[in-house]
Design a binder for these strands. Sequence first.
DNA 1: GTTCACATTTAGCCTACCCTAACTTTCGAT
DNA 2: ATCGAAAGTTAGGGTAGGCTAAATGTGAAC
Lengths: 223, 223
Amino acid sequence: MTAPLSRSVEDYLKTIYRLSERGGAAATSEIAQRMDLAPASVTGMVKKLAESGHLEHVPYHGVRLTGPGRLAALAVVRRHRILETYLIVKLGYDWASVHEEAERLEHAVSDELVERMAEALGSPRYDPHGAPIPTRDGEIEQSDYPSLAQMEVGARVELRQVDDDDPERLRFLKSLGLVPAALLVVTDRQPFGGPIRVKVGGEEGEECVIGMALAACILVERR
Amino acid sequence: MTAPLSRSVEDYLKTIYRLSERGGAAATSEIAQRMDLAPASVTGMVKKLAESGHLEHVPYHGVRLTGPGRLAALAVVRRHRILETYLIVKLGYDWASVHEEAERLEHAVSDELVERMAEALGSPRYDPHGAPIPTRDGEIEQSDYPSLAQMEVGARVELRQVDDDDPERLRFLKSLGLVPAALLVVTDRQPFGGPIRVKVGGEEGEECVIGMALAACILVERR
DNA sequence: GTTCACATTTAGCCTACCCTAACTTTCGAT
DNA sequence: ATCGAAAGTTAGGGTAGGCTAAATGTGAAC
């Protein structure tokens, strides 16, 4: 626990944290899929992380982060989100392509560097995708915004956050103006998971059509 | 050769480059000492790097970088020196403590990030310790300045470069004002490798005494 | 209440990179 | 010309973290 965590361990903890954000225990196969590893490899690491006290493992029933495990995961998430913000704001990185760079750097930067970057940015509370940045002591704002997919026709909402996993998706969203703080109005939608139609930029905005899978990645606040 | 180099390989190449800067072939034991590894470990890696075409190995007689090996090493050196410069200039890092951070980051940053940092700095040609920064295409200025240890009494010189290996040494040098561009006058020295006495800041500067080992780490240009 | 598909774990193996201990080569001193 | 210290290499082994294939547990459907 006191020894520095390996890159691999940090990635496991971060992934498990992300999975347990929405839902109870994380399944072996979910972890494997997100990390692009064989399930058997996950089982092996999970046993080690349970051993070291970072998580609880109920065989055949998934894992749950412990207090220390959650703290370690949040430290990685903080590094990642500060890095993304810094790269975009200070070094002109693209909203869509910054993820990969941060993914590598989050395992190499020291706490000192992260704090210097945070300070240079004015201690931001959200990253450019709208995700809350954990504090140094591992506190994180619980943003349980509904997704655009849940909005009914006529709803007026402000875009709060977009999932940052997929650069392609991000590029598409940006091209539509679907970025944090954008105002949206739902003008039409099909039943049974069909596409949803929204005006981007308020009542007078451009209309566009968005599939359900995509809409589920967009978190909004009612206005 | 086309696959990305591991952190370990990059460190070997960088170390071997640094060793071959001053002197022909690098010895196994020198590499081991600089990297804090057992000599046997070095032999093993050296064989692999010779296999992959990064260096030539004459058993029992040391190694020499090949063209591709030298290019790969210079890429690491460029990353390191741009990083050090960026951390100091843009993030307020200490001249003395920046080395360790750069040592980790140099294996994680992409070429794109390095180039963005270089651009933000105005494409510097020297890092804060005075070391020349290789270009993108692996060209590096041959700075064969003499060391302060070689200067005779009365010599007037400008400080050009200090070795950046040891943070403690750097802190000491900085406390004396021995930083790049400082003007020095040698006022006295003992024969047979005794300490050397210099005025720091020109004729009117503070006098201080410097041991030979330290003076050998300070490169100067006659004025 | 069986069954069966699927999730999970176990077993055994592999690569990268490090180690120590033992052996071999080199080269300067005699 | 030889000998021995120091340098280098080989042999054998360890850890971390992946993999595949085979065995086993789970739970929904019948």
